[in-house]
Design a protein around this nucleic acid. Structure first.
Lengths: 233, 233
DNA sequence: TATAATAAATGTATTATATACATTTATAAA
DNA sequence: TTTATAAATGTATATAATACATTTATTATA
């Protein structure tokens, strides 16, 4: 680096940069969020999103992936930047900004032992504990973002197991939007998207008749996401 | 801070944090972007977005506002975070992440002297020069975001002068989406939004007949934005 | 083995929205 | 007075959204 460049870059004091993950899952009944109870200071014993400082040799996005893998054992998970939280006094311990990133995971795929080892717990949205710092705000922003996103991408699929029924898909959307949909119209609209493959199997865990299982067609799905559909419910 | 806390925060090396503004304007014909030619190292003589390191006593968002005001003289401008660019090697000079933020301004309101003093120049999208670092990427991401945003918010109003004609509003949208719209349907849809107030004045600069000027009704507009319309064109 | 109970699956008519498309109008300049 | 030009307007058609009730497949029970 030239002297001029050194001057240029030296102009800033140290600001810490972290990333925090808002991890959404769905257990066939409701949308849930993974948070953990801190075991060390600062904020020992308090509930917090799962995050980390960004290391020097990793990108901001990679830092979030590392955190997610450390906690859940999962890789190649849907994750997207939400927003940077950069208020001067958001962290009383130091000047620290954080990049909120929300992830959608298939709960069933998680490594339960890992999750428990870290003291992480899934909470329903309506029984979230109070979180440290501005983490409540991150959660609330992520939820808005999730709803918005779900309205122009069939994002819900990221949260379901490989095989799923239409009623469970409907419960997922009802849980995201916190309202009921007409089952006939819901089914019609989902099938009209033409990204589902009906299987010969049924899931009989919730009814005597049983509900047909579906997979989604990744190719058609990716094409749909790419061209940016308008998926209003 | 306790010793334990000091340890906690000390775990990270220095990472620089900057913010770069993607500034959109509209001159009644086409969408334009404000970029400047750097006068000092690094990248002296090259085109760049306008940005700054985040100072210790300002939030990330305030840093972007400061940059925008310094360059254009404008305050209270529409600005929104786009994304964090956090790749390890995005800046060869140092480990430096940047927060891209896009702004929509009314070109006519700018302080031209200030703009020129900084060597900033408005460029049409189709004649953008090559930019330093990953700034081309920031521009391209911002444009995608602008189009997406325009599809569920009547965001275009931020770019127009207080009084404007429907044909000029149409040119704005045509410039954003890079395609033509049917003038009868466009007018119908815009008026159906019920956020415009027709004035008794005409703008005769582009035709002998003249086009009626409109204002927008900020109250109705805000209500509309809040409830999140679906404004597809 | 017949019956009851239950969630899953299906269809249609109505309304609202989106699209395609051609003519008239107001005005300034010639 | 005529000409030229962008602005303004309406309607019919197609597509998508909504509202709404009955039948079906199956297990458990009588």
């Amino acid at each position: 680096m030239s002297t001029q460049q050194l001057d240029y870059y030296a102009a800033q004091d140290k600001i810490y940069i972290a990333t925090d993950c808002i991890i959404f899952g769905f257990d066939n009944h409701s949308i849930k969020l993974l948070v953990f109870k801190r075991r060390v200071a600062p904020f020992e014993g308090e509930w917090s999103l799962i995050g980390s400082f960004v290391k020097n040799n990793e990108s901001v996005n990679d830092a979030a992936k590392r955190v997610l893998t450390d906690i859940t054992g999962l890789q190649n998970v849907f994750m997207k930047q939400l927003k940077v939280y950069g208020e001067v006094d958001r962290d009383p311990g130091a000047r620290c900004i954080t990049v909120g990133q929300y992830a959608l995971i298939r709960i069933e795929d998680q490594d339960i032992e890992l999750v428990e080892k870290h003291g992480a717990v899934w909470h329903d949205l309506d029984e979230m504990p109070n979180l440290v710092l501005d983490h409540n705000q991150l959660v609330s922003d992520a939820l808005v973002q999730l709803r918005l996103k779900a309205s122009y991408q069939p994002i819900g699929f990221e949260l379901l197991p490989e095989k799923f029924t239409i009623p469970s898909l409907q419960r997922l959307y009802e849980s995201i939007y916190q309202k009921k949909f007409d089952d006939r119209n819901f089914r019609k609209k989902i099938i009209a998207l033409d990204v589902l493959t009906k299987l010969d199997e049924k899931d009989k865990s919730t009814s005597k008749k049983g509900a047909f299982l579906y997979k989604f067609n990744r190719k058609k799905y990716d094409k749909l996401v790419e061209k940016g559909i308008n998926f209003k419910l």
